[in-house]
Design a protein around this nucleic acid. Structure first.
Lengths: 216, 216, 216, 216
DNA sequence: TATGAATGAGCATTCATTCAT
DNA sequence: TATGAATGAATGCTCATTCAT
């Protein structure tokens, strides 16, 4: 929700699970031009915010974000009425990416592979903007609570994957999806702080995967 | 050690120029009393800070910490000249606890048991003040860098434990001590945010331990 | 020069990525208006600071200055990022006035008259904001060191005047320009503290001038 | 007044014009010992304050003064109940020194020499603790107002000297004693800030003296 | 009585947010 | 509509002064 521009009203938000759709049917003219500009700013700001928060921490003055986005503070505030709103928009955009990664596995033949692949992709996503996630969490953004709906979809889908893998005995049954998510996120967090690169993280993920295999 | 009070430095006052100081009588008592008082405040503040930072985040005004400790801001600043100094003192005090846990295992007969036991105790420690750790890290306290010495001792000792376990084939050889530490800390972090209690964390730690067993 | 507003930097915005900017119409008016406003505040603050520091001493809370200027603290800080920066801006603006007085004498026919006239004008300038000068100096603003360049120009020009007067035997040769400056500034300082008005100061300056005449 | 210890009550203060008298008739024993100690502290603090204020400015925390004096803050406050009281005590002690210099000239045969000599000695005194004087003045210590009585004595005596010199036609008649005092103090102030040493100041004083000679 | 720990009002400065242009 | 100047509440920290030991 928060990702959508504030000014323009007529968006058809119902495409959950889709990443920023390309297919924009820009029909009219005068208002469209404005619209495009606004959207562009919206994105610019969002990206600038991600980068800035990730590198400087969430404590950075909003002005810095605006500057990095190349807009005035006023403009930033037009798009995101609050610093917190910016945080939320970022989280949502991240969740969408994760959702996309998940979607790409729904039709995989081998559930075990699918699950472990997703685990790695998930780790990749988390790792990519690791500091950002931490920062947001510490900033009091309770992702769990505020994005319950979208998380529920993700968790549910992930759990389907897991259950199928359990059925085929590719994963021990006593590890819940939430357990797995925690293990991955935590590992990314710690590895990131430890300065590990992606391969280092994959090594840790492999240890976790080993731990998830059914015990003989 | 950095935890020691800043103010009261009990150097024997050089009493230059003072007449009539015949009996060096009150050498053991009078100054000690003051010291005790100050120490008490020192501890009170440290504990209040731990609690407050953990529950409210490191962004809390220092006044809140002072209030919680039941002292004035000035007193707090007398003991910890900077907010950051408070952070550091907390970290140090935590590290000391971990070191203690580690020490209790140095003479254990079975290295595998010792290592896994310490893993659980470490997790316990980290979990106990989980938010605090996160908060500190996010606050820019680079524990790795600033407490390199003390960490080195801990890591080294831990590594000795691990190596012995590896020799007895109780742990896979390709998991470094740093890997293990990351896995634990991260897991605690994530589990904590997920609202897991200690048993939940132990469950996750068990999965990790399973992943650390030598692959058949 | 350092007096120029910090905030508004009128570089022609590079307008990267902005669509629909057909007519570069409002090039002269809109931005200028803002500028004028900011400049006005800049001056208001500078003047308020001069007055406030002079009457209350440099120890006044910055809020008082802001209040006197009729702006919020934030605004003050936007223009002068530091209390010290305010001090410096004041000094610079004073130096500029003195330089102006000096310039008005560069083409005077009689060097003796020119020199003594400038002495009186200089005294006038110093006296006008006497407390301010003192306050700044006491505040640790080392004018000599920090504005060496501008002072050098002033001193050099003044010295030219003096040398010409010496050549015409209108001034004793053993009094350096620095001596004269010291005599004037000091006298203003003391007379000011003594509650003397301008005529009182001129009387003292006349005594000094008498002392500067060549000894028969 | 403020110079006298606060605690002990039975001082016979009436010796105006005397510098710290050496002739202490310490008769009794127990209380005397205390008294001596207290007096010593009093002096130690006063001297430490002079030095500290002169070198660091009057803004220094009182603790610094106490430390330099080698006593606790509490002790300092026992002797001088307020920072301002310390300022005043310093001023008084300075005035006493000046008074002493003046006294040494009351019986001089040549009034012109006496006057000019005193001018130089006065300059010396002022110069010695120049920063201190400035600092005190800036700190809001209105010497003129607060020590009117003692100043009056000094001014009066100085004026007697001056009048005699005027009568002998050694000084122009239109320069009041206050003028002279202002010229000297101001010159010391400025010369001091300019980094001049005592000889530099004497040079300036000589210029002033030249200006004070009767105009032919 | 000397000490220095405790106190808390006070101050410089920052930054989220509003609003005139 | 975009801009950035203005706002002022909030925060870290200092320091004169008091008071328990």
């Amino acid at each position: 929700m928060a990702t959508a521009p504030v000014g323009p009203r007529n968006e058809t938000r119902s495409d959950e699970g889709s990443i920023l759709q390309e297919k924009g049917a820009a029909t009219e003219l005068a208002p469209r031009a404005m619209r495009a500009d606004a959207l562009k700013n919206h994105e610019k700001i969002l990206r600038a915010a991600e980068e800035t928060f990730a590198s400087e921490g969430v404590a950075v003055p909003i002005d810095v974000v605006a500057q990095r986005a190349g807009v005035g503070v006023g403009t930033l505030y037009r798009h995101f009425p609050t610093k917190e709103a910016l945080f939320e928009a970022i989280v949502v955009s991240r969740l969408q990416k994760i959702q996309a990664a998940l979607d790409s596995h729904t039709n995989d033949p081998d559930p075990g592979d699918a699950f472990f692949s997703f685990m790695r992709e998930f780790a990749q996503q988390v790792n990519e903007k690791r500091d950002l996630f931490d920062a947001l969490t510490l900033a009091g953004i309770d992702i769990k609570a505020q994005y319950a709906d979208q998380l529920a979809v993700i968790m549910e889908q992930t759990d389907r994957l897991r259950q199928q893998a359990v059925l085929r005995d590719e994963i021990r049954a006593d590890a819940s999806t939430e357990d797995v998510v925690n293990l991955i996120m935590g590992t990314c967090h710690a590895a990131g702080q430890s300065g590990d690169d992606e391969s280092g993280i994959f090594h840790l993920i492999d240890i976790i995967i080993a731990g998830l295999r059914p015990t003989a």
